[in-house]
Design a protein around this nucleic acid. Structure first.
Length: 571
DNA sequence: GCCGTTTTCGGCCCGACTGTTTTCAGTCG
């Protein structure tokens, strides 16, 4: 599937056209097309061959020709030409806070600034202040933007955002001038990484709330401050934006600032067609400007004849159409999970004993857990040999008779060897309750071998689930180069559950893969990959990712009752 | 560049804040 590649190319063309000064709607058209291609389940190369590109939303005559050209010649002339006009470094300038296409265009065309290094130098030398629309403050802001980019390298992981947001909200909750408070933005949608934290507050004393907001002890700098909007930078370099509105607009603001942008554009388009105008203050009658609703999100969706859409799926990936036809999925809930089958104990590389894990899990309300320690060949993680497995089984039996109301299962996270065989033989595998399999080494073989290796392991009759299927680590390791669709098909054929690994830098499978897999008929299991009891709390990020992948309770094995799980895992 | 039970041409979401200006453009979300 080259869908991602085509989408990235169109995004790049949009950026290049922005800098060139092309009209907004044209560059937006490229981005809309790119977005729709990114979420396409069908292989775009097949669509191109069968002349069906124009079936994709946002792809018309011009774009379909360009995509066809790409598949036929390996290049798009239009893109090649743009690249020659505008160097790659100029695109990077767009990432700097405070710089948009217009300013980048001026910088490039007048001072020939084509990378961040030159820009930094020019700012320090005071060369920008004489340009039209620039001044000394702009120079300082750009320098600040550069240093921030160097420090944070972009986005933060969901769990960091969660912990930071939780503390800030606790602080705000102590202030009696605040009525309602909620998170918004990509954080509320539980995206795997977050740009900055958005908070929405309703209050009749906005100015006082702003004053209190900026007094939070962890604030390092105030970025901007007004009566409705204030932004601060925290000591950990996370930006937090606060919006304060009246209570009657709380739902409208929440809807507006939760996004995604793409979702909102479509929703506002629908509002328009129905004779309304929608903004962060409410839904208004377009004719007379009268306020219609705005206190809750639900009222707004209702007025637009849509079912309520959960924040996690507001990405304009078909949820609006589904809400209209009343066929939205009943997303798995955060308290639907009854157990966790991916945790490591002191037997391998975990920091807590099985008993400690069991007691903590019981506190979380779980009915069962599975201990999935590493297998023999993963020496670095203290993988278990057959002797140790026997002892571990004994220990688990003792714990099960000692602790009530939670059942502990003995399992493994078994290495898939280079030849596709498992690290343990049949005699061991049949003794333990469940078998998760995973790759931790020899990533860099070719695509076909890697795919075959995983599928051949899935075909082993004792295997229950495939852990972190793509092995990506956010910000550090790209997903494995595997034929993911074949893996999904094999999962259905061999009845292997695919894990949604909830560890914040994995979240693997990701939202899009989950949706594609679900369409094929895959069943899932959410595992935290815990190495200590605190990691067990990561489950929420796995559930969030499952929700973003449109999963329902019935799609996920560890929402099942203990009786059902007994049937599945007790051999 | 796309799209059409408002349009095949003329729309395409909308408002706050900042810094630069002297009424507004650019950026951001």
């Amino acid at each position: 599937m080259k869908n991602k590649l085509v989408a990235d190319l169109l995004y790049q063309i949009a950026d290049l056209l922005d800098i060139k000064g092309e009209i907004f709607f044209k560059t937006r058209a490229y981005r809309i097309a790119a977005q729709n291609i990114e979420v396409l389940t069908e292989d775009i190369e097949v669509l191109a061959k069968e002349n069906r590109l124009k079936n994709i939303n946002g792809v018309g005559e011009a774009l379909s020709l360009k995509i066809k050209e790409l598949f036929e010649t390996g290049k798009i002339q239009y893109y090649e030409k743009l690249k020659k006009e505008i160097p790659k470094g100029a695109l990077e300038l767009l990432d700097i806070s405070g710089l948009g296409p217009k300013k980048v265009s001026i910088l490039f065309n007048t001072l020939n600034i084509s990378n961040i290094e030159y820009l930094k130098k020019a700012c320090i030398e005071g060369k920008l202040r004489n340009l039209d629309g620039f001044g000394e403050i702009t120079e300082r802001n750009i320098l600040r933007g550069i240093s921030l980019k160097e420090k944070t390298s972009g986005r933060i992981l969901l769990n960091i955002a969660y912990e930071t947001g939780e503390k800030y909200i606790n602080y705000l909750n102590k202030y009696d001038k605040i009525d309602k408070i909620s998170v918004a933005g990509s954080f509320r949608r539980m995206k795997e990484t977050i740009g900055d934290l958005d908070l929405i507050v309703s209050s009749n004393s906005p100015h006082k709330v702003m004053e209190y907001f900026i007094k939070y002890p962890k604030v390092k700098r105030i970025l901007l401050m007004g009566n409705t909007k204030t932004s601060v930078l925290l000591e950990n370099n996370i930006q937090v934006d606060l919006r304060v509105i009246e209570d009657k607009s709380f739902g409208a603001a929440l809807q507006y600032f939760t996004g995604s942008k793409e979702h909102n554009v479509k929703i506002r388009g629908i509002a328009n067609k129905k004779g309304y105008k929608l903004n962060e203050y409410g839904l208004y009658n377009k004719e007379n400007g009268n306020f219609v609703v705005g206190k809750t999100e639900n009222e707004i969706y209702q007025k637009l004849k849509l079912r309520f859409i959960e924040p996690e799926i507001r990405e304009n990936r078909g949820e609006i159409e589904a809400a209209f036809s009343n066929i939205l999925p009943k997303l798995v809930k955060y308290d639907d999970i009854k157990g966790d089958f991916h945790m490591h104990s002191t037997w391998s590389d975990g920091n807590n004993t099985i008993e400690e894990l069991a007691l903590f899990s019981k506190k979380l309300g779980y009915k069962y857990i599975g201990i999935a320690d590493h297998s023999e060949s993963l020496k670095i993680a203290n993988g278990l040999n057959s002797e140790k497995i026997k002892k571990k089984i004994n220990e688990i039996e003792k714990i099960n008779s000692k602790i009530s109301d939670i059942e502990v299962f003995c399992g493994t996270e078994c290495e898939i060897k280079k030849n596709g065989r498992l690290d343990y033989d049949k005699n061991i595998l049949k003794k333990i309750d469940f078998v998760g399999i995973a790759i931790h080494s020899s990533f860099k073989t070719n695509k076909k071998d890697l795919t075959d290796r995983i599928i051949s392991a899935m075909q082993n009759e004792y295997v229950d689930y495939l852990a972190h299927p793509t092995c990506r680590i956010i910000g550090r390791r790209e997903p494995l180069d595997i034929d993911i669709k074949k893996i999904f098909e094999a999962a259905v054929e061999t009845n292997t559950y695919l894990e949604i690994n909830a560890f914040p830098d994995r979240l693997d499978l990701n939202d899009l893969n989950i949706r594609h897999a679900k369409d094929i008929g895959v069943k899932f299991i959410i595992g935290t990959d815990s190495h200590n009891i605190n990691h067990l709390n990561f489950m929420r990020y796995g559930i969030a990712t499952a929700r973003r992948g449109w999963l329902e309770k019935k799609d996920i094995i560890n929402t099942y009752s203990k009786e059902k799980i007994d049937i599945i895992f007790r051999r």
